[in-house]
Design a binder for these strands. Structure first.
Length: 167
DNA sequence: CCCTGATTCGC
DNA sequence: GCGAATCAGG
């Protein structure tokens, strides 16, 4: 699919809003995240404000798409020695009840929703702003931790409702 | 393994 | 100019 003026403008807008390349690709449709990244570079938009990534590749050994060199580099990776032990937070807060406001750049549409994303619907499906939660979920439930609590309400909450209902 | 952006280069 | 393949990294 061609980079029409409209699509380029949309790309610029979404990139400025902080959407990731894959998210933008999902919204545009017809392009991969690689295409988006490539276009971003050609437009000179790369390097978003607070991205202090220094992922520039090491120079020197890479010839072309040299497979030998790649393998050598890959073999040299993975020297993870010690990980800091983290203390678990023992304080448990009660489950929140209010709906969360999902930041614009984290919202998922039907096109960007992945298997690993929370499918809790937010808003009116007939409206443009309709989206899904989109945060990370585990494999056992279709929702993130927060929305799982809303979907499967704890016994306590139901007891309270029952009590209200009966008197 | 999920994801992120960056780079190279055949097309 | 385009973007797949591949990279480095969280």
């Amino acid at each position: 699919m061609a980079w029409t003026d409209e699509r380029v403008e949309l790309l610029k807008k979404l990139w400025a809003e902080g959407l990731s390349a894959s998210q933008i690709a999902g919204r545009l449709g017809g392009v991969t995240r690689n295409a988006v990244i490539g276009k971003v570079h050609r437009l000179g938009l790369s390097g978003r404000a607070t991205s202090s990534r220094s992922s520039a590749p090491r120079r020197g050994a890479i010839t072309r798409h040299g497979k030998i060199e790649r393998r050598r580099l890959s073999a040299r990776r993975g020297n993870v020695a010690l990980k800091r032990l983290t203390r678990r937070n023992t304080i448990r807060r009660p489950a929140p009840v209010e709906e969360l406001v999902i930041p614009l750049h984290e919202r998922a549409t039907i096109l960007t929703l992945k298997e690993s994303m929370c499918r809790w619907p937010i808003g009116d499906p007939t409206e443009e702003e309709f989206h899904f939660c989109g945060r990370k979920k585990d494999g056992t439930v279709p929702y993130c931790e927060h929305h799982a609590r809303m979907a499967y309400q704890p016994v306590q909450a139901r007891r309270r409702e029952k009590r209200f209902a009966s008197g």
